Simulated scan of single mutants.
Amino acid sequence: MSLLERLNNDMKQAMKNKEKDKLTVIRMVKASLQNEAIKLQVSELSENDELTVLSREVKQRKDSLLEFEKAGREDLVDKLKAELVILEEYLPKQLTEEELSTIVKETIAEVNASSKSDMGKVMAALMPKVKGKADGGHVNRIVQQHLS
Rank of each mutant, 00 (worst) to 15 (best):
K121A: 13
K22V: 04
T102P: 04
K22C: 01
N8T: 15
A113G: 15
R73C: 03
K20R: 11
G120P: 02
S115R: 14
K18A: 13
M11K: 08
N9S: 14
Q34T: 11
I108L: 08
V58S: 06
Q13F: 05
L4E: 06
S117L: 05
P128L: 03
L7N: 06
L147N: 09
K93W: 01
F68M: 09
V104C: 08
E106H: 13
E57K: 09
D49L: 12
L4F: 07
L45E: 09
L87A: 03
S101Q: 15
M11I: 07
Q41T: 15
E106C: 06
E5Y: 02
E83S: 07
I142D: 00
V58K: 10
L54C: 12
P128M: 01
P92F: 04
F68H: 12
L40E: 15
S2M: 03
M119F: 14
K131T: 07
A125H: 10
L126S: 01
K121Y: 05
D118C: 06
Q145E: 10
L100I: 06
N17Y: 02
L65A: 10
E47R: 12
R56G: 07
G136I: 03
H146I: 03
Q94P: 07
L65K: 06
F68K: 15
E88Q: 09
K20E: 13
Q13T: 14
Y90G: 01
K70D: 11
E97L: 04
G136M: 07
V85K: 13
K81V: 02
V130M: 06
D10Y: 06
V143I: 06
K12C: 08
M1L: 04
H138N: 14
E89D: 14
Y90A: 03
T102G: 13
L65Q: 08
S115F: 01
K79H: 05
G136E: 09
L66T: 05
E83C: 03
V122D: 01
G132Q: 03
E88C: 02
K81Y: 00
N140W: 02
L40F: 09
K131F: 08
M15E: 15
E69R: 08
K20G: 11
A109M: 08
L54A: 13
V104P: 08
E74N: 06
V122N: 04
E98S: 15
E83K: 00
M119N: 02
S46E: 11
Q145G: 12
R73Y: 03
Q94H: 04
E106L: 13
L33F: 09
E83H: 07
R73D: 15
M123P: 04
V85I: 15
D21C: 01
S101N: 15
K133Q: 14
G136P: 08
V53G: 14
L66F: 00
M28L: 09
I142F: 03
M119C: 01
L91I: 01
L65D: 05
E67A: 14
A71L: 12
M119E: 05
A37W: 08
S114W: 03
S55H: 03
L80C: 05
S2I: 00
K121N: 10
F68C: 04
E89Y: 01
T52R: 12
E44F: 02
D75S: 13
L126V: 10
L3W: 02
N8K: 15
